[in-house]
């Protein structure tokens, strides 16, 4: 996957720093940290990566597109949320449509 999408050092650092703060959304699957400067996010998983993707695939309607949840390794989070997200009332939206990320 590295050859398809690679994030810059500054983005990964900013996402990594966001993880040290309080999560924007927390569920039993993981914590989502929202970075308003980039409209991106980081997810720190509480479950294995494969289970997380199983969960996403099980969402019937407001499921994120595969390119919106990009796995990364060797960081203090596991997923880059790359989707121009907005967070309102504890929910995540992409282009005005609610999307469940975690």
């Amino acid at each position: 996957m590295q050859s398809l999408i690679r994030y810059s050092t500054n983005i990964l650092r900013a996402l990594s720093e966001s993880v040290s703060k309080a999560p924007t959304i927390s569920t039993n699957r993981g914590d989502l940290y929202f970075l308003s400067r980039y409209s991106m996010g980081a997810i720190r998983l509480k479950i294995p990566l494969s289970e997380y993707f199983d969960f996403l695939e099980s969402i019937p309607e407001n499921r994120p597109k595969p390119s919106w949840t990009v796995p990364v390794s060797n960081l203090n989070f596991e997923i880059v949320v790359d989707a121009n997200i907005e967070v309102r009332d504890g929910k995540t939206f992409v282009d005005g449509r609610e999307v469940v990320f975690v």
């Binding site: 999408i5 690679r6 810059s8 500054n10 983005i11 980039y38």
Partner: peptide, 8 residues
């Protein structure tokens, strides 16, 4: 500011 490289 560079953000990402994306290749398809």
């Amino acid at each position: 500011e560079p953000i990402a490289r994306k290749v398809s």
